[in-house]
């Protein structure tokens, strides 16, 4: 547990390192709206953006095919690119893909690899800061979602989730519950109850 802090608020007893914290003199301050656990000196952002990192799994939408390079919309200020020669299936504008970031170039464009087209299915976007909670510790939450809804779920760290088959409505309801209640304890148990229809 902890207390909610806003940008510019002092973090007493903070002694680690975090992209979401800055120092002025010998004091630490939060850059974001987050939950601060002063006992453990830990700040968890409630709202946060996604910065592309090597190895991130993402879901994107093909924007255009230009000279054998696909440009991909990633729900972020930076685009992805994928070489068509490394992709088995030809892609078209509007196609939804899953991919892994192989490299990030100088202009912060993400070079994509292991590109896979996602057919059918629906995508929803959530704040990227909620993705870790949707996955859960050791993927417990996402496994529970798949089991409870019989949906195929692909989760992009860029805040895009692809849902196919199974009980879409239940999956979406559970995901929005996780997003809204991400900062509360006992969530795994409540999502389990929702999926089992006990509410």
């Amino acid at each position: 547990m902890g207390t909610i802090v806003v940008p510019g608020e002092v973090l007493e007893r903070f002694n680690g390192r975090s992209d979401n914290v800055f120092f002025d003199g010998n004091k630490a301050y939060s850059k974001v709206l987050g939950i601060y656990d002063s006992e453990r000196g830990m700040l968890t952002p409630l709202e946060g953006l996604w910065y592309p990192r090597m190895g991130d799994t993402v879901i994107g939408i093909v924007e255009e095919d230009k000279f054998n390079i696909y440009t991909v919309y990633l729900n972020a200020p930076y685009k992805g690119i994928a070489m068509s020669k490394f992709i088995e299936e030809p892609l078209a504008a509007g196609d939804i893909i899953e991919a892994v970031i192989k490299d990030i170039d100088r202009t912060k464009t993400a070079v994509l690899t292991r590109v896979r087209k996602l057919n059918g299915g629906k995508i929803i976007s959530v704040k990227p800061s909620k993705i870790p909670r949707i996955m859960g510790h050791g993927d417990t939450m996402i496994k529970q979602l798949v089991q409870g809804t019989k949906c195929t779920l692909v989760v992009g760290l860029n805040g895009v989730i692809w849902i196919s088959g199974g009980n879409y409505d239940l999956a979406a309801e559970a995901i929005f519950k996780i997003v809204e209640e991400a900062h509360t304890p006992g969530l795994t148990e409540r999502v389990k109850e929702l999926l089992e229809g006990k509410k």
Partner: peptide
């Protein structure tokens, strides 16, 4: 490109089945 545009195919396939997203 927006997520709305990527959802066109999904909306169309739902409607063909006589369903709406919501």
């Amino acid at each position: 490109m927006t997520i709305r545009k990527a959802m066109v195919g999904y909306v169309e396939s739902m409607v063909k089945k006589g369903l709406r997203e919501d």
